[in-house]
Write a protein that binds this DNA or RNA. Structure first.
Lengths: 218, 218
DNA sequence: CGCTTATGCGAACAGCGTTCGCGTAAACTG
DNA sequence: CAGTTTACGCGAACGCTGTTCGCATAAGCG
């Protein structure tokens, strides 16, 4: 699904004229730093340019659009995942490793939670991630469509759980007026009251989702 | 999770002074029409005000922020779901009905795919949706936490599948340069080639996810 | 009839993504 | 080495955004 276009450092160009003072990666790195410390909303062409000690208009020599910069940011950060080639452990365990690594990534770069769900296309590192997941799932001997679906759902649920963890740490300010719900929404009230052990929620949910999606031999 | 704040029509206020010429619901309805026909990005304070034949600044008598308007839009549209009280059919079938209804809603209001994933809090209709889902799941006799998790994952996957369906109908312009991946990403290439019957993908994935998340008796 | 209170809203502000056009630096050409 | 070409750096501007201010206006109350 989706494309690659030209995210990475493209290859040969007959060098001519003035040499560029920056690179796409360098600019994306600066933007990532801004996003890490100030949030994705503070990643503006001007703020990124300022962080680089240049002018806003200069960035358009490297990216034709802000969204293109965001796409490279997402792909660069995705490259932080350490994708150790699949080993001979059960595939479920390997997928959980992958999920834990992704969760760590979302903790380091909370803006990725929203950015990666908006991103329209996969870059090289996104493809590498997908390739790795498919390699891990190969032993399930499912057909291609099933595996692609499974990876998509797996990624979405991993992101969802990371988002919930993040929202729990960051109150989010709105909490009033949930009290009246106790009357009108009995099941909701009951569910909120009767909450079991919420520890290891992450692993538990992912195991269950994976076990439902794919055959459980091996 | 989250709150309600004051989305709906709040109750008594000692009527005094000039009467308001609009209502929150009316404004949200106009905004929803704009979003349906022009996309969420075209929902600006000015465009909504224009659609209502009023001035942009007037909207701030009803919403203190654009995000508040968006939240009401989401909740109002969520209210379009017809939540027939749970019946005695298997809970899986009832959840699939709910998912189909949600998919229809996403087809009618594609902007909801992004809007509902950004929305920070549940409004009254969001709570009603949650209440309904929990009522359907009650026969599983799971604990509250498990059921809340299940509904969250169920909703996220429903949205994901609706988004993929929508992306398939709307090319999304970027598709070049996926060819070189054939060499570097063998599993990916294989999976894309070996794609089984992609029909009824929606029901199949949801059934599997639900069967993994909750005990399958009854 | 004032008096109070809330609404409607034109005008303005700060900030955004993006474009234009020019000055300038670097590398090829003769 | 001078001249030409090519690309970069970027100040200034445009159109658009969400939001605020302040005042004219209208409706109920005593």
């Amino acid at each position: 699904m989706s494309a690659m276009v030209e995210l990475g450092s493209s290859s040969a160009s007959p060098r001519r004229g003035r040499a560029p003072g920056h690179s796409r990666q360098e600019i994306a790195a600066a933007a990532i730093e801004v996003a890490d410390s100030e949030g994705l909303g503070s990643v503006t062409m001007r703020s990124v340019a300022l962080a680089l000690g240049t002018g806003a208009a200069s960035l358009y020599r490297y990216f034709s659009t802000r969204d293109e910069l965001l796409a490279l940011m997402v792909d660069e950060v995705t490259g932080e995942l350490r994708l150790n080639g699949p080993d001979d452990r059960p595939w479920v365990d390997q997928m959980l490793d992958l999920a834990h690594d992704a969760r760590d990534l979302y903790r380091r770069h909370p803006w990725m939670i929203e950015a990666s769900s908006t991103a329209p296309a996969l870059g090289p590192n996104g493809c590498a991630y997908l390739e790795h997941a498919l390699a891990v799932l190969a032993p399930t001997r499912s057909d291609g469509g099933t595996m692609l679906e499974a990876v998509a759902v797996f990624s979405a649920v991993t992101r969802l759980l990371s988002k919930e963890e993040h929202d729990r740490r960051d109150p989010g300010e709105a909490h009033a007026a949930l009290a009246p719900s106790t009357d009108s929404f009995p099941h909701l009230a009951a569910a909120l009251a009767d909450t079991g052990p919420s520890a290891d929620q992450f692993d538990r949910v992912l195991r269950r989702v994976l076990s439902g999606l794919l055959p459980n031999d091996r």
